[in-house]
């Protein structure tokens, strides 16, 4: 009984302390940044508008692997793989429905080529919802975005125009299958 009462008193005390602590916050300075009068500093890794970047050679980085699309929890990425005459994969179309996107960044996590990146641009409102459907042409930037050096095709074993078999990083020249030498 005594214990119970003590416990009840303690609970009441704790509620009062809470009230007091919260009350003291009224005298603290508000953290609010008065956007848009005041533009906030956006961190480079902020997850805002999505772009598609290019590799250091200026070629489209996306290889149309579909991993971002499958990672996307709201299924708002759709693309179609195609390839150029030398076998380089790239997306024929690449579409994001930003009216569905929740800016979770999973697509960027999933991307094996650093092609798809979220940027600090968060001002994405549109008056017409249809305008929130973006195609590759709208998203493809001319630079490398946040990751400057990565060039997927320089590492992959697949040959593309300008890079034959055995010319990727850490590769031996192609084997002559008619030779019996070790």
């Amino acid at each position: 009984m005594i214990n119970f009462l003590c416990k009840q008193l303690y609970i009441i005390w704790s509620q009062l302390v809470t009230l007091w602590l919260v009350f003291t916050h009224i005298f603290k300075k508000a953290d609010t940044v008065e956007y848009p009068d005041q533009m906030p500093y956006m961190f480079p890794r902020w997850r805002g508008r999505i772009i598609l970047s290019r590799d250091p050679d200026g070629e489209e980085r996306c290889v149309a692997c579909n991993l971002c699309a499958v990672a996307c929890p709201v299924d708002c990425i759709a693309l179609q793989k195609t390839e150029d005459e030398n076998g380089r994969w790239y997306p024929e179309f690449f579409r994001i429905n930003f009216s569905r996107c929740i800016m979770c960044g999973f697509c960027e996590e999933a991307c094996p080529t650093h092609a798809i990146q979220l940027t600090p641009d968060f001002e994405m409102a549109e008056y017409v919802r249809q305008d929130m459907v973006w195609e590759k042409e709208d998203m493809l930037i001319s630079g490398t975005g946040k990751y400057h050096d990565y060039n997927f095709y320089k590492i992959a074993g697949k040959a593309i125009g300008g890079k034959g078999k055995g010319e990727a990083r850490n590769e031996l020249p192609p084997i002559d299958r008619r030779s019996l030498l070790p």
């Binding site: 009350f23 009224i26 603290k28 508000a30 953290d31 609010t32 008065e34």
Partner: peptide, 10 residues
């Protein structure tokens, strides 16, 4: 507003 102030907002 008051809630805002209590939460350190405006």
């Amino acid at each position: 507003r008051v809630l805002g102030f209590l939460n350190e907002r405006l």
